[in-house]
Every structure is written in structure tokens, then in C-alpha cells.
Simulated scan of single mutants.
Amino acid sequence: MGTLRQILQRGEFVTGIGVYDMISARIADRTSANAIYVTGYGTVASHLGLPDAGIATYTDMVGRIERIVAGTSKPVIADADTGYGGLLNVHHTVRGYEKAGVSAIQLEDQEFPKKCGHTKGRRVIPMADMAQKIRVASDARSSEDFLIIARTDARTGLGLEEALRRGEAYAEAGADIIFIESPESEAEMAEIAKRFDKPTLINLVHGGSTPILPKERLVELGFGVAIYPGLGFLAAAKALEDAFNDLAAGKENTTPIYDFAKFNEVIGFPEVWEFDRKYAAPGS
């Protein structure tokens, strides 16, 4: 499969399945998708049970990201919000994410505290301040195979043209992939994809502001990367709600469930059983 940079250089479209814990990561790793995306929204919700509103810290995130990288085989794209502070924080965050084995870090130009990109009340910092963050991030990495994704949230509050201007500034500052958050139509998506000579990323949130287009259409428009941060936790939440409500009401479960034997395989029990066969004392 290679690194994320190699995948992009080969002209392959990158599909980043959104994961938020080790169960979702293990299952995503068994698919034919060529990347994994660690969603800040989902990880904060799973770990803290709180909204993606600038509450989670670098420490909250980096340990979970490191575990996901270690437990999977695909390139991992990881959300790093605003870099968790100022320029020195960005430098520290880039070093930490790269050490954790991440293939690409996503940094955004929101004011702190940030908010999920498909929710209300987002405000952005000055373009020059974000461009400096991207320069710091680019200089902080030890390998060019570690990619910098620059996200702007300017579309919603300041319009598409301002978001595109910011994308150009961030590309010039050293970003490898440009991410214009929350376009509201296919026409806007087309304008974004054709504007840059670097790969562009589209964030497809089920129930969000951006149309969910098939992969073939995204390729036609010119995008290089698509991430799907919400599909996993939304599907899991619906299944849990239905199954738990039936259980609480004393009803027979009718929700489709994962095969238990297959889940044992996904989570790694065959390796445990092989270890026991090799090392455990007879009768233990």
C-alpha cells in the first residue's frame, strides 16, 4: 500500500474511513479502504462523552491516536484541531503525532475553543496567523512523508472566496493537502477541487452541510482525499439505541449484530489461543 504520500503520488484516490476507538479501527482496517481517519468529534465523544468543542487536550488525543496506529496497518490521518494552542503547541503537536506514527496531521484555522466543522458558531483566526502555524508545522516534522493538512472553516462565516484565498495562503506556507470545510453544493465542491495544484480533501459528514457524492464523482471533480468521520459512530449509535431499547423493554433483539466468533478474530483472540497452545502449562 505504501505511505499516504506514495498513494497520492500514484494518483490513487484516498478514502479515509472515520474511526473513534479500537473496535472501529480494527474493523476499518479489514476493509479495502486505503486510509483511516481518526475523527476528533468521534474520539472526544467516545472517550469523554462530550461535544467536539475544544474540550479535549493534546494528551487526551495523542495516546488514543498512537494506540490506533499501533493496532492497524493502513496510513492514519489524524485530527489535531487547532494544534492545541499557539505556535509552540503546534510544534509540539506535530512532533508528537509524527512520533505516534501518524501519516498526516489535520490543523484548522478556527479560534479557540474550536467547534465541529458542521456545527454553528465557528470563527476563524487571521489568515496570516494560520499561515504561520502551517510554517511551524512544516518545519517541525522530521520526514516529508508526514503530511500537513491545512483546513479552513472560513466558508460558513466569510464565504467561499475567502476560504479559497486562505487555502492558497496555507498551500504557499507549506501545507501538502488543502481542506476547505463545509462547502454547501456540488458547484462549490467543483470550484474547490479545481482551484489548487495540491491535493484537496473533502469532508463528507452524513447529516452535515456538504452533499455526499459517490467516489467516482469526487474523482471527476478532482479531489484527492475524502474522509467520512461520522458514518461509523452514527451507525453504531443507531444500532446500540435500537438494541438497548429492545432489551430494556423486554423484547427479543431484532437489531443486526456482529458474529461473535468473527468479532473474536477481529479483536485478536486467535493470537491469544496460539500463545496458550505454545506456552501455557497443560491443564492450566
Rank of each mutant, 00 (worst) to 15 (best):
L164Q: 04
I125A: 05
D109L: 05
A239V: 05
L160V: 02
Q132I: 04
E188F: 01
L50H: 11
G268V: 03
E271H: 14
K120A: 15
L160G: 01
Y20D: 14
V38C: 12
P51Q: 10
R64M: 13
M130A: 11
A163W: 01
I227E: 03
A53E: 13
G222F: 05
F263N: 04
A280S: 12
T93K: 00
N245M: 11
S185L: 09
A56H: 12
L158Q: 10
G250V: 13
A249L: 10
G159D: 04
P270D: 06
L158P: 00
A226N: 07
T57A: 07
G85S: 00
I68R: 01
V90P: 00
V14C: 00
E184W: 02
I125Q: 10
A249M: 05
E111K: 13
K120S: 13
L204Q: 10
K215M: 09
G157K: 01
T156F: 12
A131M: 07
A281W: 10
P282F: 06
K198H: 09
L107F: 11
Q132N: 11
T93W: 03
R26Q: 08
Q6W: 02
P75T: 09
T156K: 13
K262L: 11
E191M: 10
A53R: 12
T31S: 15
P229K: 11
I77W: 01
I202Y: 03
I180S: 04
I202L: 13
F223L: 01
E144D: 15
G268E: 02
M130P: 03
Y58C: 01
D242I: 01
A187Y: 00
T255V: 15
P75W: 15
D109H: 06
R141C: 06
L204P: 01
D129I: 09
I77H: 05
R195Q: 14
